[in-house]
């Protein structure tokens, strides 16, 4: 007979959890202030100048948080969990899609068993690799350019003008807003709806 304690595995270390929740809180604030900035005439959450100031402060907090993540993950070598195994990635991804699209509904077990060294399934690996190394940096760099348009005008002009930078920032804004929505929903697909949420607070995921 296995005890409750033995069934729990420690998958999210404290720095990762702190980083995750700072990031999550920052994202929500960035989305709200971003909506206020873009739709100033429709929304009235706060004055536009306050929304811009808050957006800038939170943006820099998220950038700092990202740099902490980068140093921690690259420094500790944990960044490996983001790199898919090219020999298996297609097979594993197909399995995962089948699970979300069919297996989950009929009560089949998740084909991916989460361990500290293999936290992400093949779909998560690809998504997070893209997000952490391409999309998030693009969002941060375009955000910094928009923060000081005059100061960075040379780089902005090189990239095709302020409208190109704005397009990147806005499209990614919509992408990340959609991502948060789906991310929150997928987080309810644990063995209980709140299991993954609890794990992101306690660090322990129940092993099945």
């Amino acid at each position: 007979m296995t005890s409750e304690k033995e069934k729990m595995i420690y998958v999210h270390s404290a720095p990762v959890r702190v980083w995750h929740w700072i990031n999550a809180f920052g994202f929500v604030l960035l989305i709200l202030t971003g909506l206020q900035i873009r739709y100033a005439e429709m929304l009235n959450l706060m004055p536009l100048s306050d929304a811009i100031s808050l957006h800038n402060y939170v943006g820099f907090a998220v950038i700092f948080d990202y740099l902490l993540w980068l140093v921690y993950y690259v420094g500790s070598g944990k960044v490996r969990i983001y790199i898919p195994d090219l020999r298996q990635v297609v097979t594993l991804a197909v399995k995962q899609v089948k699970y979300y699209g069919y297996g989950f509904f009929v009560g089949k077990p998740n084909p991916h068993a989460m361990t500290p060294d293999n936290k992400f399934n093949a779909l998560q690996q690809q998504a997070y690799l893209m997000i952490m190394f391409v999309l998030l940096p693009a969002q941060m760099i375009s955000g910094v350019f928009l923060w000081k348009i005059k100061g960075y005008s040379e780089y902005i002009n090189l990239l095709g003008g302020i409208k190109v930078i704005d397009t990147i920032h806005v499209v990614l804004f919509f992408f990340f807003t959609t991502f948060i929505l789906i991310h929150c929903y997928l987080a309810t697909l644990g063995h209980t709806p709140l299991a993954h949420f609890k794990a992101m607070f306690t660090g322990y995921e129940e092993h099945h």
């Binding site: 900035i37 873009r38 739709y39 100033a40 005439e41 536009l48 811009i52 002009n157 095709g160 003008g161 302020i162 409208k163 190109v164 704005d166 397009t167 806005v170 499209v171 804004f173 919509f174 992408f175 807003t177 959609t178 929505l181």
Partner: peptide, 22 residues
């Protein structure tokens, strides 16, 4: 492409892409 004003000259195409994604 070298002029953009927050909210004032926003591209409606972006809003459509956003609504589509969401």
């Amino acid at each position: 492409s070298h002029f953009y004003l927050l909210a004032g000259t926003r591209m409606k195409l972006m809003d459509k892409i956003g609504i589509f994604l969401l």
